[in-house]
């Protein structure tokens, strides 16, 4: 009796495993047009759900009810749709932009700074150093390297005032580097944990 039970159990499990495998092939790709061509199917229309240029722009500057809309507004329309929201949120967030005439260390007032940010594209130089900001070379917005401490740069521009000295406890999160060293060669990102 016991042996029979175990046999049935094993058989049931085996059947379950087989059926599971059959029904779980969710990445099965049928041939194109049944023409004997085994190329994957790349047909169809793909509609936008998320987009990103510069780090943290949507998360920091877009009000919660508008985040989906920001993700589905093309860059040429972002300034008209979002710059004033960004400016309102920036002035509410940062004491360094609370008074008329306040600027960041780039010499931008809240309108100029948020005009830069509202069109959420990442500038990329094809001529040399690529960095979000390198205080040593002075290079600014020429790309985004893996080692760039982009959050501290953004905190400084948001909270640091005209000379990066305002609100010092808010303008650096004191996490300056990744938890694993990056690779010098492709694919550059560190191996997974």
């Amino acid at each position: 009796m016991k042996i029979i039970n175990i046999k049935y159990l094993i058989m049931t499990l085996a059947l379950a495993a087989i059926s599971f495998n059959c029904s779980n092939d969710d990445d099965f790709t049928p041939p194109n047009n049944g023409g004997g061509n085994n190329e994957p199917d790349f047909s169809g229309v793909y509609a936008q759900q998320d987009q990103m240029g510069r780090p943290a722009v949507n998360t920091v500057f877009v009000s919660s009810g508008s985040k989906n809309m920001f993700n589905t507004t093309i860059p040429t329309q972002q300034n008209a749709a979002f710059q004033s929201m960004f400016q309102t949120n920036l002035e509410a967030l940062s004491p360094a932009f609370a008074n008329p005439g306040d600027m960041n260390a780039l010499g931008q007032d809240s309108a100029a700074f948020t005009t830069l940010l509202a069109t959420d594209v990442l500038n990329l130089s094809l001529d040399g150093e690529t960095t979000f900001y390198n205080p040593n070379s002075g290079a600014l917005l020429t790309g985004r390297a893996l080692t760039d401490d982009v959050i501290t740069v953004e905190l400084l521009l948001i909270f640091g005032g005209e000379d990066f000295t305002e609100n010092p406890t808010l303008s650096n999160d004191n996490v300056d580097a990744n938890d694993k060293p990056f690779l010098t060669s492709f694919p550059y990102l560190a191996s997974p944990w």
């Binding site: 759900q49 998320d50 987009q51 990103m52 240029g53 780090p55 943290a56 722009v57 949507n58 998360t59 920091v60 877009v62 985040k67 989906n68 920001f70 993700n71 990442l122 990329l124 130089s125 040399g128 150093e129 690529t130 960095t131 790309g143 985004r144 390297a145 893996l146 982009v150 959050i151 010098t184 060669s185 492709f186 550059y188």
Partner: peptide, 26 residues
């Protein structure tokens, strides 16, 4: 932050872009 889980429609899903980098290669 960055863009991790930035908006309700994509939060934590398979289309949620967490980050974007562009830089000069080796």
């Amino acid at each position: 932050a960055a863009d991790h889980i930035d908006a309700p429609a994509v939060s934590g899903g398979t289309s949620d872009v967490t980050d974007f980098y562009a830089f000069q290669g080796e």
